[in-house]
Design a protein around this nucleic acid. Structure first.
Lengths: 229, 229
DNA sequence: GAGTGGTCTAGACCACGGC
DNA sequence: CCGTGGTCTAGACCACTCC
């Protein structure tokens, strides 16, 4: 009794094994369903159920007519959990925003530690666009700015999480930015300017304050939207 | 062309619909595979692939001989992503610990805001056990203490994330605590004491410092372990 | 046209849980 | 014993991709 593992775990373990032993690299093709069926002595049914699981975990990707490929899309699988939670009314966008604040605060601290001249230049360019660009360019710059901080944190898991969270609330954020009045655009520019300054001057404490302010602003906007804007 | 959705999305949408309309509640049974097969005019194959996906997302649970049930196990699906990332060497326990620090810092801030007498009493009891209990009880108290903070944050998504992260690194943490020398136990007690005090006195800034110290300690221990303890 | 994923047919047997 | 999930058989056809 006890561990009567479901058959498809064999497939999952087999693929994980191949991946671990580097017999397949990311982007590489895994054996076809018919092959796996013979190799592992399973029906095509069971093989496909296993592949569906792996696809869901973001380990493989099925491409019609081509095959199944080893990929690294675990972020997508995180997004689907978050959007499902919102769908199931277990959480809302403000909860999600709180998580984003937590992530970005941490990322910011790490990014400050890892700053160098090249990174500073890149961020400076983004801030410039944010100040002088068209409204559309500003929104893009906002996205790039936050993405840069996450990237410079050097923590892949944090980046994965943040991307997943951002993906889920992307539409909400865009909506907020598109409808921001000029008064708020000024606040927004100021906050990002501050975040930038403290990043290059390596003054994390003050920078964190700006990050907090940034997310409080979003939180207020979300609150307004909840109340039927 | 374009959106030739895979057949099993019909099943997923159907179940999501039933859940949204509250025709099935959490813990309730969804139609059997044979029923779904007829209702949606699909083969049992496709139905099962869909159910496998839903199971992976933590939406349903299959119970042999009983049926498929609507559940809320999305945290598990998060855990599997994190452990998969570690398996695939995309991240390590220290990255994960950084995420935990980010989560707990945020949770701590929220918990301070939402403190009340009853909660204070509960935490006081945990701290007492931590100080006077056996080593095993202390480890349990540590777990309870952090869980309480997360719970009192009032953010379900944050709790879900934290639980998932903790599940993945539970063994590592337990190992660290079990092997802590008395010298370190003192530091550990002091940090938790400080976190507790600042929680009841509603002094978040100082409390956060203690949280940081707490995670830096874990980080150091993890570093030691990496270097082949 | 060959190979591959996506889906279906029309059954079947086993293992498990509840009555 | 019946209903249910877990698995299998031994095929089949379609749609897609690549050559």
């Amino acid at each position: 009794m006890a561990e009567t593992q479901k058959a498809y775990f064999q497939v999952i373990d087999y693929i994980k094994q191949l991946a671990k032993e580097q017999k397949i690299v990311f982007g590489g093709k895994i054996p076809s369903e018919r092959e796996l069926m013979e190799t592992l002595e399973l029906s095509r049914n069971s093989v496909r159920e296993a592949l569906r699981s792996l696809e869901n975990m973001g380990i493989i990707e099925s491409r019609h007519g081509k095959g199944n490929f080893l990929v690294n899309h675990m972020g997508r699988s995180l997004s689907s959990v978050f959007s499902m939670m919102i769908f199931m009314k277990q959480s809302d966008y403000r909860d999600l925003n709180t998580l984003r604040r937590a992530m970005e605060t941490q990322a910011y601290l790490l990014a400050v530690e890892r700053m160098d001249e090249e990174k500073k230049k890149k961020i400076a360019a983004i801030i410039k666009t944010m100040k002088n660009g068209s409204h559309k360019e500003q929104i893009q710059a906002d996205h790039d700015f936050h993405r840069a901080i996450i990237e410079y944190s050097g923590n892949q898991m944090l980046a994965l999480m943040m991307d997943a969270l951002s993906e889920v609330c992307e539409d909400e954020i865009t909506l907020i930015l598109e409808n921001a009045t000029t008064e708020y655009v000024d606040i927004w520019l100021e906050v990002h300017g501050k975040m930038y300054e403290c990043l290059v001057d390596e003054k994390p404490e003050e920078g964190i304050e700006a990050v907090m302010k940034h997310y409080e602003w979003i939180d207020n906007e979300l609150k307004k939207m909840e109340n039927g804007f």
